[in-house]
Every structure is written in structure tokens, then in C-alpha cells.
Design a protein around this nucleic acid. Sequence first.
DNA 1: CGCTTCATTGACACACATCAATGACAGTGG
DNA 2: CCACTGTCATTGATGTGTGTCAATGAAGCG
Lengths: 191, 191
Amino acid sequence: MASILAGLKPVIRELAAGETLFASGDATRGFFLVRRGQIRLARFSASGCETLLFVAGPGERFAEASLFVETYHCDARAVAESSVACFPKSAALALLEGDATARLELTADLARQVMELRSALTLRDVRSARERVLGYLVARTGVDGRTITIGGPLKDIAAMIGLAPEVLYRTLALLESERIIRRGNGIIELT
Amino acid sequence: MASILAGLKPVIRELAAGETLFASGDATRGFFLVRRGQIRLARFSASGCETLLFVAGPGERFAEASLFVETYHCDARAVAESSVACFPKSAALALLEGDATARLELTADLARQVMELRSALTLRDVRSARERVLGYLVARTGVDGRTITIGGPLKDIAAMIGLAPEVLYRTLALLESERIIRRGNGIIELT
DNA sequence: CGCTTCATTGACACACATCAATGACAGTGG
DNA sequence: CCACTGTCATTGATGTGTGTCAATGAAGCG
């Protein structure tokens, strides 16, 4: 990911909790990378009800698609005190036109995102918490096909796979009692 | 859209209703453009339940991401008797390296897909069937911000937003009784 | 040491999935 | 032209799995 950004000079912006980065209808300035904190992307319908689109955490990019449209189509607000890097639209597009490596990389990266999102979407259709957790674990096994390293709190995983944290805790405990998984320090192992 | 196709010689393939274009695990041949009919992209989880990813209609491309991986990750089946243009992988990749217009177009399309998939994923986090259906409807309103045109059976929409068909029927009936929506011939209108 | 966040387990209610029955409708073939 | 068949839409009844609330303990942190 860093290589795509290597040729660009981002503008660092610090945001207080609750501060707005951009609003729906604003002219697009470029895409962003979260350095610290969380940015909440949401859309408000005419009737005023809010649709949460995405919550971007550290290391995640968002609004890449803004490179190709004139105005933002959602609101971006900092959940907590945050720091984001802003990559200007014109520079990013120029890089895309000029640098063969960068353009293939961005395209391939977007393609990978599409596949990952499709996988995540498929996982959500599994009703059973047990099967969904197993599906997630299998999908996240490392090269040995057995070990999953947990980076960050379990409740983040719960949010990612669309379960209440308590349900995830219970399910993991159940799977462990069935000897299907073993849990260690920041590690889960399939048996 | 035609521009991306200008430099390629697609292979035209005719499909009978129900015929499979490719299956999960098949070696990628390239991406496709629907000329006539409808192609249904779906994925089956280990437990056998189906996730509807996309229904591609005339003029729509699909499986672009396959250019960057070795095997397909979903099934493509013709809903009705259809005709698709197949753009071979190698030729498409060569075009991507050479033609700036084609490259930007494909990248923009992938970026749009990422946005749509994120929206779909976010929608799944809405527990309440009522709110989820409303969210879907709001996201699918046309230019007037009020009208949604239904192309295809309601049960396909149910699958797309992760609800049992019966629940969608019930929810729509409820919303209609509350005067929040009006239903007409293949049309839903927000009030 | 408080204070906060995370993890864990228990109890409970409710919303959704599921099964079932019926009607509407299009397509098909005799 | 009319039974026949299949799919879709609709509504009812029912069970269960998940969300939610609550209480407790553990661990990191100022």
C-alpha cells in the first residue's frame, strides 16, 4: 500500500472528536488514509435517517472512489480524536496516468478489495453464529492453514463479522469446549 | 463503456436459461459484458446457503476482478436465455497497460463497486428488517429521490439484503400500511 | 489505587427464520 | 381454449437463536 502513496505528498490533518472532514455535496478533494482514530462514513437520506457506510480505522483508506466523481456522496466525521492523511485528487490522478506500477497496483488493489468485500458479504449470509465464526476463522488462517493471529480486541472481530461481542465470546467458548479450536495468547488454532 | 472494449476482440457466447458460464474454482478466462438476458452472480457458503452478489443486465460488465486472480470466486449462471461477450484476460491486461482511457474506466468501475459493496455490507449491520429495507430503498432511489424500480422478483431483493423472502413481503406490507411507501407495478415510491 | 476497557457468563425477550397453506399469474401442452 | 405446472407473492402460526441487559472479574493505565 505504501508504494502507491510513495509518489504523493499527503496533507496531514488533525481532527477533534466529532469534527467533520467532508460533507455530502462537497467538491471532492481526494482520498484519505486514517493514521490514528476512526472516521465514520455515513449518508443521510431525505427523510433524515442515517445510513452508516463504513468506519475507517488506522491504516485504512477511504473515499478512493472520489477520484472519479465531482462531489462526495456521504459525510465523513471523526468518531474520536483522529489524524488523517489527505491525498489530493489531481496528484493522485496524475500519478495514475504516469506511473505504470502505481496504476496497476491501485487497480489490482481495488480488485482485491472487491473480492474481500464480496467474501465478507457472503459470510454475513451465514445465519448461525457458530458457522459464521468458523467461516471467518478458516478464511483468516495463515500459511499453515491452522493458526489465526488476533490483532486487536475480539469485539472488533465481532463487529467485523456482524455479531454482538457477547455472542462471539460465547461461540468461541463453545468451539473450544468442543475441541474444535484452541485459544492462546492472541492466537486461535484450528484442530 | 464502449471505449474500454474498442481494442479487444470479444468472444460471443450464447447461454440457455440456467446454463452456467463459470463456477467457483474455475480458472479465470477474463471478464464479461452482458449483451442480452441476465447473468446471476452468486456464491455458496460451506453450509450450502446462497449469497446473491449481483445480477448483471444488458450493458453491464462483471468479473473484472478476475483479471488479477487465477480462479473465479463465485458462480455465474444465466437467469434467462442470454448472450455475453467474453474479453480474454491476457488481451484485457495488455490493453490496461497501454490504453489510458480503458485503464481509468476500469479503475473507476472497480472503485464504484467498492462503494456499493461497502454500502451493502453496512446495510447488513442494520438488525431490524424494517430499517434495513428502508435503508435499501433509500439507497436505490432514482434521480427524483422517491422512486425505486424493481427489476426482477422481490425474492432476489430479499436475498440481496439478507432477509428471508417472507420477511421482506411482510415488511413491505407493513411499510405500506404505515403510508411510508406506495407500491405500484414494478415500482415502490417513498412518501 | 481508582478508572476504563475488554472478556466472560447468566437470564430473558423478541424478532426473524421456518414451515405451512392459499391465491395470483405466466407458461406449456393437449 | 382449458387443465396443468411451476414460480412468486402473501399471510398465519410457531420455535429458536441471537441481541440485549446485567453483574463480575481481569488487565492496562494514569
